[in-house]
């Protein structure tokens, strides 16, 4: 049985994270109006991921949680990555263009 004493995160840490999140939001909005070509989406998702990481680590106390809770969080990200990577690679490698796939019923009508 673990005798893990509870870690209390101080309000100062919460305030710092809050302002970091607000700053992140501001940067996202400003960056969205600049043309970085194909990097716009990379920047937007990069900032979103940084913000989400801050929320998980500090607001959700993941940094101070027991190892097994941290393992569950890593698993969530891992399974999500599998789902996204395999499905997207499937769509990317298809010969047929998605919009040109004709539903079977339409074939019979002709």
């Amino acid at each position: 049985m673990s005798e893990h004493s509870e870690h209390i995160v101080s309000p100062i840490v919460y305030m710092v994270i809050f302002f970091a999140l607000i700053a992140g939001t501001t940067v996202t909005v400003l960056a969205a109006f600049q043309n970085f070509g194909q990097f716009n989406i990379v920047i937007a998702l990069g900032i979103a991921t940084a913000k989400a990481t801050l929320v998980v680590l500090y607001f959700m106390h993941a940094r101070y949680s027991p190892r097994r809770t941290q393992l569950v969080i890593v698993c969530a990200v891992f399974w999500l990555a599998i789902m996204l990577a395999l499905t997207l690679s499937d769509y990317q490698t298809r010969q047929q263009h998605l919009s040109r796939i004709v539903p079977p019923a339409a074939l019979y009508r002709a």
């Binding site: 939001t25 996202t28 909005v29 969205a32 109006f33 600049q34 043309n35 970085f36 716009n40 989406i41 937007a44 998702l45 900032i47 979103a48 913000k51 989400a52 929320v55 998980v56 607001f59 959700m60």
Partner: peptide
Amino acid sequence: GLYWHFVDIVWIYLFPLLYLIDRHR
């Protein structure tokens, strides 16, 4: 609290993906 923060995270991704994808023209 954990649940509430999770819902916040979902919005952190929804906001750029829905609102900001094509503003730079």
